[in-house]
Design a protein around this nucleic acid. Structure first.
Lengths: 330, 330
DNA sequence: CTGAAAGCGCTAACAA
DNA sequence: TTGTTAGCGCTTTCAG
């Protein structure tokens, strides 16, 4: 790897001249700049990140902490973040908390040691339950900016991006009602997450608006892996003409179980689910879906973070972006 | 963050003494070491990575390049790698190539600039087709070690870890045959990947061994997103009593389409699929699955890499690990 | 056994 | 307009 020193020697100028030329300093002659930049280009000069970090105390990189990389929604958000970060010339360090508080603390620590300029996080379930956010509030003192998405804690004073869960589910429910359904069940595999509460509220609000609150039917589980029997019993014991699934798996499972055990009843049921467009094609017929717009959320999160990183004046106003999900009936 | 300088001042010794004490150098008194370490502990001293990297030219970190983070198999391998790396005190930088050659080249470059000690990669489809591995062969000159997994190119002289695809599918096929099936179809969404070729070979080998080569039935597509119609036609036009899916989606889709359009025929068909245990529960009844043992592959890959990084004598022998998949009938 | 000093590659006063 | 220099935090050689 070429260094400033080598460039300087080749061009018979000083190291600082080269440095300044590459950084387009005011006080360097145009001709010199041209020569320096040309040689830098041909030698494929890249500044040494370690020297830079040591000097400047920041790294032009950001950290991302995801609760679960296996969830395609998070993977999609990550895609958006990386894309935006790459374009802006930032490296991205990715950590996965696996929903664990301890792991999240470790991740924050690792990112801090790597002098990231900011962190984008969706908080782990365990952390949310513990309500212990010290590892995150500490970041302010270290001048590391923080943006939350999706799993947003109101206790944290920082920018955030999320789907308007309540409004989105209310919309979806209303659409089902308009299409003639009035016995709508809701299935959740999200446990006690706030996200779940908001989505369920949206569902209830829609039923209430339409005067069918008595038809509320909820199936709530925490994780869907071993819940086939619960699903089957729920189907057996309840009548419904539509189902809303508010996580990324229960809709698929629900449809498949129903099709398998209750094929006749299934024909009259409309299911809509919070899943990725691609996963909607895993079932036959394909599932209707609520698009969480992960990539957009990722891009938006990065842009908020970048603004904080680059703005000189501290702007105290906290930005809370809410996106409405789009709803797709197949 | 505490620095050596601060420790030195507090203890009234020189910076170099502190440095040596923390690194357990031979020539420092036991008592001094104890005092230094104690203070370092209480002040939570962590060496500055940038200073270290600048000095030593390596970073105690590794890079991982995955073709697709949305594939739960890769996510699981990543989990294994991170776990092993964390225990060994290495940071992990993760890149996603999205199956793109250009992105892969960029990722290698980024990792190189970050002075990773080694890279674990599963090569992008596009790169494999282009057969252009220069960005990877270059790594040797930079003393960055390389380990491949899963998508292994024989053109690259480096350690590798993979499922024994041929043997694994042969096993699975034989088990189906033993259970009385003899019209076994194979479905692939993997396009022209080597992995697919090997798996198909295993399937053919098993049929041949059992004298039923005439029953070969293949459905090959590249990506499964918009192939419902192809799947349906295939089912309509062929008779089979079992199906092997060699990617992480086609099995699920196949079962669901069959259950939807051909429920009677479906009852007599046994399906086995290359998917994660959790995804096996997306369908009803659950899918039989071939366990690719992603976490183990991740751990093994990291351990190979770590050996290369830490060994002083260059060992020229290339290690090619092959793991046999386990097969789970539900 | 301990310390002084050089240097990794870079930036940014300050001098010329 | 360009160059000199100090210093970021660390390791390591060499001197004491």
């Amino acid at each position: 790897m070429a260094t400033l020193k080598e460039l300087a020697k080749s061009l018979n100028v000083s190291i600082s001249t080269v440095s300044k030329a590459l950084n387009d300093a005011e006080d360097i002659g145009e001709e010199t700049k041209r020569r320096v930049k040309e040689l830098a280009e041909t030698l494929d000069y890249k500044p040494n990140k370690f020297a830079l970090g040591l000097k400047t105390k920041h790294s032009k990189s950001i950290g991302v902490i995801l609760p679960d990389i296996q969830n395609p929604y998070f993977a999609e958000v990550l895609y958006g973040i990386e894309k935006a970060a790459l374009e802006a010339g930032f490296d991205t360090l990715i950590c996965v908390s696996n929903e664990s508080y301890q792991q999240e603390v470790k991740s924050v620590r690792m990112l801090t040691e790597n002098l990231v300029d900011g962190i984008i996080i969706s908080i782990a379930k365990e952390t949310l339950n513990l309500k212990d956010f010290q590892h995150l509030t500490n970041l302010k003192a270290k001048k590391i900016h923080l943006v939350q998405f999706d799993r947003v804690s109101p206790d944290l004073a920082c920018d955030s991006v999320q789907i308007d869960d309540q409004e989105s589910v209310k919309n979806a429910t209303n659409q089902l009602i308009k299409s003639g359904k009035n016995k709508i069940a809701l299935v959740s595999g999200l446990g006690s997450l706030n996200v779940a509460k908001n989505r369920i509220q949206g569902y209830k609000a829609a039923l209430k608006e339409n005067g069918i609150s008595k038809n509320i039917k909820l199936l709530e589980v925490d994780g869907v892996d071993k819940t086939h029997v619960q699903f089957k019993n729920f189907i057996k014991q309840n009548t419904f003409d539509a189902v809303i699934s508010i996580d990324n798996k229960s809709g698929i499972i629900f449809q498949n179980i129903m099709q398998h055990y209750f094929p006749e009843r299934f024909k009259k049921v409309k299911i809509i689910s919070f899943i990725h467009e691609k996963d909607a094609l895993l079932t036959s017929p394909p599932l209707n879906f609520i698009n969480q717009r992960g990539a957009e959320i990722g891009i938006l999160s990065f842009n908020l973070l970048k603004q904080r990183i680059t703005e000189k004046e501290k702007n105290k106003t906290i930005r809370k972006e809410k996106i409405i999900a789009s709803i797709n009936f197949q």
